[in-house]
């Protein structure tokens, strides 16, 4: 059943409304657990739209397999999503720097506080992000070190390619995940794909992973068949490749492929001169899990990230 979580008046003939779909299984109450799936904090990240769709569709198809509650929040920044704005439009602020919010604060601090309050009491929360418009990512769970020990036991069932601990972007204390984890609601951050796009196969992979996790928690009765277990990594094993000049980046490899030391990753060209300004070469062997999609680069722009020193955890 679609419910309104929070509503607050905008200036002209409209309320800002946060909605969720509460899915209650017919498979008995079992352990009575509640899992929340949230997405759309960043309005330019749409991969979670497909994950939400898959979750709702499949649970509606087989409600007898669910013995608990799944709450799906498809758009935490509804105005941002509508205009493909990563930030909160008008305020130009990153919503994922506003948690836990303030119920007596400004409009969006109240929105943030209402979301946190609504999620409190969940047994698990999964916050689905996509990459931005600039780089493409493989499906991964990002954990901050503070909570990693507890979260890794959930994250490994998520059918993602990789778990990255202490990735700088998720370390931030004002994120939804940090606020929820601090309150004792285990919260996983999923990253995948590309901004402003939906990659259906990634979406299905992650949805499958969420069902697998629901199964592990004892609230979904059917174990998904083909689950893979992720590579675990920390910042030390991730090699960042950045542009050291400005120009147009043309990749020479495919995303999510292995490279060897010395392999060409791409080049930065200058169209007006018709020449190659820089050749970008891998300094280590590994998996290119991040690759630049948006061609214009300035000095410092992220071109690729390589996961080195890969230890696959097989035979689970």
């Amino acid at each position: 059943m679609v419910k309104t979580v929070f509503s607050i008046g905008l200036s002209t003939g409209e309320n800002l409304v946060i909605k969720k779909n509460r899915l209650e299984g017919t498979g008995g109450h079992g352990k009575g657990k509640k899992v929340a799936i949230v997405t759309g904090i960043h309005g330019d990240e749409l991969e979670g739209q497909y994950v939400c769709y898959e979750m709702v569709r499949r649970i509606k198809e087989r409600p007898e397999l669910l013995n608990g509650v799944v709450d799906v929040y498809p758009a935490l920044n509804p105005v941002g999503i509508t205009v493909a704005n990563r930030m909160i439009p008008k305020l130009d602020m990153d919503m994922n720097r506003m948690f836990p919010g303030d119920e007596n604060g400004t409009s969006f601090e109240r929105v943030a506080a209402a979301i946190v309050q609504d999620l409190a009491g969940a047994d698990l929360c999964i916050d689905v992000h996509a990459s931005n418009r600039f780089v493409k990512e493989i499906p991964q769970v990002r954990l901050c070190e503070e909570f990693s020990e507890k979260l890794i036991s959930y994250a490994r069932h998520m059918n993602v390619d990789m778990i990255w601990t202490n990735a700088t972007e998720t370390v931030h204390e004002a994120t939804l995940a940090h606020a929820m984890n601090s309150m004792g609601v285990p919260t996983l951050v999923v990253e995948m794909g590309l901004g402003m796009r939906v990659n259906r196969s990634y979406g299905r992979q992650v949805a499958e992973g969420i069902f697998n996790l629901l199964y592990e928690l004892g609230i979904w009765k059917e174990r998904p068949k083909h689950i893979q277990y992720p590579v675990l990594s920390t910042d030390g094993e991730v090699e960042f490749i950045r542009a050291d000049c400005s120009g147009v980046f043309i990749p020479a490899i495919e995303h999510s492929h292995f490279v060897k030391k010395g392999d060409k990753i791409g080049e930065i060209i200058t169209p007006v001169e018709g020449k190659v300004e820089r050749e970008i070469v891998a300094k280590k062997d590994g998996l290119v899990f991040t690759l630049r999609e948006y061609p214009m680069v300035s000095k410092g722009a992220l071109l690729a990230r390589i996961l080195t020193d890969i230890k696959t955890k097989e035979g689970e």
Partner: peptide
């Protein structure tokens, strides 16, 4: 820049980081 970074939230910066951090 195209990433829309707030330079005043990049300090102390990183010499080998993103453009705004540099």
């Amino acid at each position: 820049g195209v990433e829309g970074e707030d330079i005043n939230s990049q300090f102390p910066g990183r010499t080998y980081g993103d453009t705004a951090e540099q």
